[in-house]
Design a protein around this nucleic acid. Structure first.
Lengths: 238, 238
DNA sequence: GAATGCAACAACGTATGCATTATTGCATTC
DNA sequence: GAATGCAATAATGCATACGTTGTTGCATTC
């Protein structure tokens, strides 16, 4: 083995996970590359290449690929390497259906806990950030997307059901790229911002049922908007 | 390496999967052992032992363990081997919450398809089997459990959202052992049987909303019954 | 000129070897 | 007698070697 693999290890460190095991380093790094679109959908990646780039052997890379396959981010074709998942419109619909089932449950569970306002701060701050990003003459879509993502991550993290949190994060990751692609195509997400705020208000008021309903409606609308965009622009794979 | 590994390969074959890769053999077999309680909850399993028993090397066993960890059936503790997951009452509650979110969505999707009656036959037959198992003087709980499981498997299989199907199956497997344990402790599942039938009737009638509601109610009642049993009997880990 | 077959190559699936690390047991000391 | 430290053992995490399989390209034949 030549070199030291520092670059890869540091990159993984940067994402806040403990990179004790090289398997973990490979997992975090390959996952990042997929989500950041460095490995475009439909492309094939060879475990040998990844191993060489990250300066480690094929073994931890293989393990990482197995995990990523179960995350739905790629599929391992037995003698043909790993193919990065390319999502069709139908795939996006499937993913949204699942999120519509899972996330409102998480929101309901959080609301039922009747947390103190300060504990809901992460969500409030995300809403604030969304609103700020759209103020002024030049809306900052990138900032809005970051705030939106932090909101949904916050929901998963506050959710007391850890299994549910993990599933939500996994499914969200699958739709990550599609959200990025459509971000600039959709109308200004003013309504979406309002809807997030309304959900938080219901949570603050401890109205779990209302929070759930609002969130279901929010996700349904988001899905319809996204599906319309995908069909209008004729995206086949993203 | 001695022997030929025929036993393990045949066992995996028997469960209807293609055992092309040894990784797949190891995965199916270890999973079976966990679900059949041959590896009791909380126990530790050593990859070397499994490799020796299945007559293959540690490599495919490792991959299988990684997959099983993501399935939630065990957890790999870095230098301590794999520990079979032991579910607490809180874990069972988490799992039921997720199933209550996912399965009713599947039922709704199936009902919306307005399938011909013959395509819903698997579910009808499961209901028939449940009813038959409770007729007569000596109810056959084992047969009932098998029919119940086939019903829920049928729901997952008929569901047009493949991702959703897979998630339901994975989560169901996690609660498999707990269901077995409590089977003989719960009252005769007459009501549960009726509820299944009602769901199928709603699906046959194409009433998706009603099917969903009935199913949510069914699962909620099942959860409450199970949780009460667990608490009454003071199960700590299952 | 096109198609088929063979050969070389490349990638994967699996096995095994090596070094690190954690645990356990025994001995020694307080 | 108990506690601590060291050593031996065992199991993991990772690297690498090997055999199998699928692919690609060239040559030969129809």
């Amino acid at each position: 083995m030549a070199g030291d693999g520092q670059v890869a290890a540091q990159t993984a460190l940067g994402r806040g996970k403990r990179p004790q095991r090289l398997t973990e380093v490979a997992y975090q790094e390959v996952k990042r590359r997929i989500l950041d679109n460095e490995y475009p959908p439909g492309s094939q990646i060879l475990e040998q290449d990844i191993a060489a780039e990250l300066d480690l052997s094929r073994t931890p890379v293989r393990e990482a690929l197995v995990r990523l396959e179960q995350d739905g981010l790629l599929s391992i074709v037995p003698r043909h390497g790993a193919r990065i998942s390319a999502l069709s419109a139908a795939d996006m619909r499937e993913i949204y259906e699942i999120l519509i089932a899972l996330e409102p449950t998480a929101v309901e569970l959080i609301a039922r806990q009747r947390l103190a306002a300060e504990q809901l701060q992460p969500l409030v701050q995300s809403c604030d950030a969304m609103e700020r990003s759209l103020e002024g003459s030049k809306p900052d879509l990138k900032a809005w997307a970051a705030a939106d993502e932090s909101f949904h991550t916050g929901v998963a993290q506050l959710c007391p059901n850890r299994r549910l949190s993990a599933m939500i994060m996994t499914v969200s990751d699958q739709s990550h790229r599609a959200r990025l692609f459509t971000l600039t195509l959709r109308p200004l997400p003013l309504r979406s911002t309002q809807e997030h705020r309304a959900v938080v208000d219901a949570m603050l008021a401890g109205d779990a049922d209302r929070a759930r309903e609002l969130y279901v409606a929010h996700r349904r609308r988001g899905r319809d908007e996204l599906m319309a965009l995908i069909e209008r622009h004729g995206f086949q794979r993203l």
